[in-house]
Structures are given as C-alpha cells and as structure tokens.
C-alpha cells in the first residue's frame, strides 16, 4: 500500500512539474536565437563577407551553431576575444586566410575615372554608394563600412580603399607621440611632488 502511495505521489509530482515546464516553455518562449543575437551585436557589422557568410548576422548564426570564431577579419583579435568570452571557448588567432591589416578604411571613388556602370552600387551591402547609370558615383563616407566589396566589381579600377585620417576628434591620447611631463615645485619641500601637465 505504502509503495502504491509513494508511486502515486512521485507520479503526481512528476506530472505537476511536467505541466509547469510545458506551460513555461509556451509562456516564456523566446523568438529567435538569443545567442546569435548577442554574437551579432559583437560583430563589427561591416557586412564584408570575408568570413564566407553573406553578412554579419549569418556568421553570428553560424558561430552559434558551432562555426569557428576566428573568421571575422575586420573585427580582429578584439572581436575574437569578445566572442570567446561569450561562448566560453578558448581565444584563437585570426584565421590565416584573412588579411591581418584591419586599420579602418573607407572606399573612395576616383570620380574622373568612373564610367557610371553601377556595379559597385549593386555590390555595396549597406547602400553607401550613390549614383545612377552613366552618371558619376560617389561614396557616402559616413555610411561606408570599409568592407572592400565594391573594389573588385569595378571594371575601370577607380575605387580604392583609403585609411581614415586621424583628426583631433578621433585622437586616442597616444602617450608615445607627446611628451608626458610632470611639473615639480621646487619651493615646496625636498620630496618631489608630481603634477599633471
């Protein structure tokens, strides 16, 4: 009799929790893949396709499903480190097939050479090139992600990638290029007191 009661109790508990879990899975269903979303947020969104996927989101989804984490060339080591942190895996060096030079660049159209073929417009993943058939094209620098995809299709090779120049606005307080000096007050006392300059 006790055994039957025990089985019944266990059974009821099991059913209850089963029902709870079932309800929760319906009630708190998450649309989409949260991991892929998080990975997508880490990627630089250049949409360059160097990873072999058509854009950053597809690569994020692939990484979520077990693709190698070291294929994002524009993101470089920083992005790999962030992905490794998120995925809880070892940091890997950047895939050897990719260029390691990831200085920020933007496309530039040599306008006098442009024949207006619109091939680059079709190639641009973020619609950062404007122009029309047989009209000169130009790049909206603020929107260009520097993905390089417009360079190859150009029949007259009039697109080049130019590094973004350093201005006072994006200067990074590089200590090596300016002298860091401490002003010392001789008048105070023997112990030198550093001052910020």
């Amino acid at each position: 009799m006790t055994i039957i009661i025990a089985i019944l109790v266990i059974g009821v508990i099991g059913l209850t929790f089963g029902a709870l879990l079932g309800y929760a899975s319906v009630r708190f269903k998450v649309e989409g893949d949260p991991l892929a979303e998080q990975l997508d947020a880490l990627l630089p969104q250049t949409q360059c396709g160097q990873c072999g996927y058509p854009g950053c989101k597809p690569y994020a989804e692939a990484v979520a499903n077990g693709e190698a984490i070291n294929k994002c060339a524009p993101g470089g080591d920083d992005t790999i480190k962030k992905i490794a942190d998120l995925m809880g895996v070892e940091v890997q060096p950047l895939d050897g097939n990719h260029e390691t030079d990831n200085t920020p660049k933007v496309a530039f159209i040599i306008e006098e050479d442009c024949i207006g073929c619109t091939k680059c417009i079709q190639a641009c993943p973020v619609d950062a090139i404007i122009g029309a058939t047989k009209q000169m094209h130009t790049v909206i620098i603020d929107e260009c992600t520097g993905c390089d995809l417009c360079v190859a299709p150009c029949p007259v090779d009039c697109i080049e990638m130019r590094p973004i120049s350093q201005t006072t606005r994006n200067w990074q307080w590089d200590l090596n290029t300016i002298p860091v000096v401490q002003i010392d007050e001789v008048q105070i006392d023997a112990t030198p007191q550093g001052k910020e300059v």
Binding site: D40, Q45, T46, C56, K57, V126, T145, Q172
Partner: peptide, 21 residues
C-alpha cells in the same frame, strides 16, 4: 575616455550599418 568614446562611435556606426544592411 577617448577609447570609450571611439568605441561608442563604432557601436553607433555598426548599428547603423546593420539597419542599412
């Protein structure tokens, strides 16, 4: 501070690129 500002700018740019894409 400069790094964080730059990172914020890049994040904004990435978000914009994503939307455009």
């Amino acid at each position: 501070k400069a790094e964080i500002r730059q990172q914020n700018l890049l994040d904004i740019k990435a978000e914009k690129a994503k939307v455009r894409f």
